[in-house]
């Protein structure tokens, strides 16, 4: 079953095309990574899905057409943008009470469990919390709402590695099951690579690729040879050539064989650079 269907989605900011005829189907029960360079259209795509931006084209969320912002959408989708978007003027307790009262599907048991595990100071103003604490609060209020889709837009930006790991572990442990879908837009693809099932590459407002990660990786191999055998690799017309200490690596089709080479599966960031080009993010 498709939870989100996007057809011919185009978004312009003046003369700039932020999204260009995007077609997308987001199935149920998947963890999907949305990968693109800065300004590729990741955030714009998420904001269009939520109806925060005006656009041309069609978006259906669980059969409901979205052509402008509808509050009912938030009964189906929870959204975590950059964690500094919480309201600094409220205390932690007031923020929890506020979200709990507005969301009919608020799960007090989950909230209580997440709260007891965190060391959130309930009477402290959100503005006085560290970024890590804000992340915990955002997770608590988002994961305590029973929704089908979770959109994460660069949620761990500016967080240290401990909080980033904790963030994704909490999401997997507390939220995900086979009836729910998570879409994660992030720059730190290496950190989420292990939890992602599908990947979407977006570049210059266009969807370059949408595929099951396991299938994608099966299509390609990362071949490593000594630096002096670079010409051999180049003859294979590889998607990407990179250099490591004393070695040359190339992404090629999985059926390509070279004598004496080391074979491994390419990483998502390698595949992204190979498909999209530009610097390795």
């Amino acid at each position: 079953m498709e939870l989100i269907e996007v057809r011919n989605l185009t978004k312009r900011y003046g003369s700039l095309k932020a999204l260009d005829k995007v077609d997308l189907k987001i199935p149920e029960g998947r963890i999907i990574g949305l990968l693109g360079k800065n300004g590729a259209g990741k955030s714009t795509l998420m904001r269009c899905i939520l109806g925060f931006l005006k656009f041309d084209g069609e978006i259906d969320i669980m059969g409901e057409r979205v052509n402008h912002h509808k509050e009912s959408i938030h009964n189906l989708i929870a959204f975590i943008p950059d964690v500094s978007s919480l309201d600094d003027r409220l205390t932690v307790q007031q923020t929890i009470d506020y979200v709990a009262s507005l969301n009919e599907s608020w799960n007090a048991v989950t909230a209580g469990r997440l709260l007891s595990r965190s060391d959130l100071p309930l009477n402290q103003k959100v503005g006085n919390l560290s970024k890590g604490m804000k992340t915990k609060l955002y997770l608590l209020i988002t994961l305590s709402i029973d929704v089908k889709i979770l959109l994460l837009d660069e949620p761990t930006l500016g967080l240290d590695i401990v909080f980033r790991k904790e963030f994704f572990n909490t999401i997997l442990g507390e939220y995900f099951d086979e009836t729910k879908t998570i879409i994660i837009s992030t720059h730190q693809v290496e950190e989420v690579e292990q939890i992602l099932q599908d990947i979407i590459f977006i570049d210059e407002g266009k969807i370059i690729l949408q595929e099951d990660i396991a299938e994608l990786k099966n299509q390609y191999s990362l071949i490593s040879v000594q630096s002096n055998r670079k010409e051999e690799l180049e003859k294979l017309n590889p998607m990407l050539i990179t250099h490591t200490l004393g070695k040359v690596n190339a992404i090629v089709g999985s059926d390509v064989q070279i004598e004496g080479a080391e074979y491994s599966r390419p990483s998502l960031s390698d595949l992204f650079v190979a498909k999209v080009g530009g610097s390795n993010e």
Binding site: E71, A78, S84, S85, D87, R89, N103
Partner: peptide, 18 residues
């Protein structure tokens, strides 16, 4: 004020009528 304080997205993401 919410837009200036960068918390508009948080408030708009609640299922409540404008």
């Amino acid at each position: 004020e919410d837009i200036r304080r960068n918390c508009e997205l948080f408030h708009r993401s609640q299922p409540v009528s404008i």
